[in-house]
C-alpha cells in the first residue's frame, strides 16, 4: 500500500470521525443530508459484499467494518435518536436521491468489466459513490451558516477520492499486474470534480479567516 492510498483512507476515516463527533458531542446533525448518508450506506453494502468471503488484509477487513458500522450508526442517530433527529433539516434535504440509485444501477448493468452479480454490484457502488455527495452539496448551498465540523467533513470527504486518484496513477506506474481500470478512474475523477466549487470556497474562507458560506 502506497502513501497516497493510505492518506486517502485516513481522510475518509477522518471525515467519518468528524461527522460522528458533531453528532455525538453536539447532539446535532444540522446541515447534514440524510439522503447522502443513506446513499453511502448503500455504497458500502454493495461494495463490501465480499467482506466475509474475500480476505485481503486485516487492515482492509477492519476498515470495511468501520465504514459499514459508522454509516449505520450515523443513519441511526439521524433517524432514531430522540435529540439528534430533531435537528435534521428535512425541508432543506429535498434531492431526489432515488433517481441517482436508479440511474447508477442502470449504468452498472450496461457498463461494467464483467457481468457477474458481485462485479455489477461493485460497479454500481463505484458509480453511486461518485454522485452520493450531491444531496449534501445542495443542502450546503442552502445553509446560511455552515459550522466548522460540517465544512471539514465535506472537505475531508472530497480530499479522499482525490488522493485515491494519485494512488491509481502511482500503482499504474509501479505495479506490473495492476490493470488499467478506466471505469474507476473516470468515476473517481467525476467524484472529486464535484467538490471543485466547494474546495474553492472552503480554501477562500480559510485563508480570509471567514465563516464558510456558499453562494446561492
Amino acid at each position: 500500500m502506497n502513501i497516497f492510498r493510505f492518506a486517502g483512507d485516513m481522510m475518509h476515516l477522518l471525515s467519518v470521525v468528524v461527522l460522528l463527533l458533531k453528532i455525538h458531542k453536539m447532539k446535532s446533525c444540522a446541515g447534514i443530508s440524510l439522503k447522502t448518508q443513506e446513499l453511502y450506506a448503500l455504497v458500502f453494502i454493495c461494495r463490501y459484499l465480499d467482506i466475509f468471503t474475500g480476505f485481503i488484509s486485516l487492515y482492509n477487513t477492519i476498515m470495511k467494518i468501520v465504514f459499514l458500522a459508522s454509516a449505520f450508526s450515523i443513519l441511526w442517530y439521524m433517524r432514531s435518536h430522540k435529540v439528534v433527529r430533531q435537528t435534521y433539516d428535512k425541508d432543506q434535504d429535498t434531492f431526489r436521491h432515488y433517481f441517482l440509485i436508479l440511474a447508477c444501477m442502470v449504468l452498472a448493468l450496461l457498463v461494467h468489466h464483467k457481468f457477474t452479480f458481485r462485479e455489477v454490484m461493485w460497479t454500481f457502488s463505484i458509480y453511486l459513490e461518485a454522485v452520493a455527495i450531491l444531496p449534501q452539496l445542495v443542502m450546503l448551498q442552502r445553509t446560511r451558516n455552515i459550522d466548522n465540523l460540517t465544512g471539514n467533513y465535506v472537505f475531508f470527504l472530497g480530499t479522499y477520492r482525490g488522493l485515491y486518484m494519485l494512488n491509481w496513477v502511482y500503482r499504474y506506474l509501479t505495479e506490473v499486474h495492476y490493470h488499467h481500470r478506466w471505469l474507476t478512474w473516470i468515476s473517481g475523477f467525476i467524484q472529486t470534480a464535484l467538490y471543485a466549487d466547494f474546495f474553492y470556497y472552503y480554501v477562500k474562507s480559510w485563508r480570509n479567516n471567514e465563516k464558510l458560506q456558499l453562494p446561492a
Binding site: 492510498r5 483512507d9 475518509h12 465480499d50 474475500g54 485481503i56 482492509n60 476498515m63 470495511k64 465504514f67 468489466h113 464483467k114 462485479e119 461493485w122 485515491y164 494512488n167 499486474h177 495492476y178 490493470h179 481500470r181 474507476t184
Partner: peptide
C-alpha cells in the same frame, strides 16, 4: 487474477 486487483481497495 483479472477481477480482483481493483477490489483490494476500499
Amino acid at each position: 487474477n483479472e477481477s480482483d486487483d481493483s477490489h483490494d481497495e476500499l
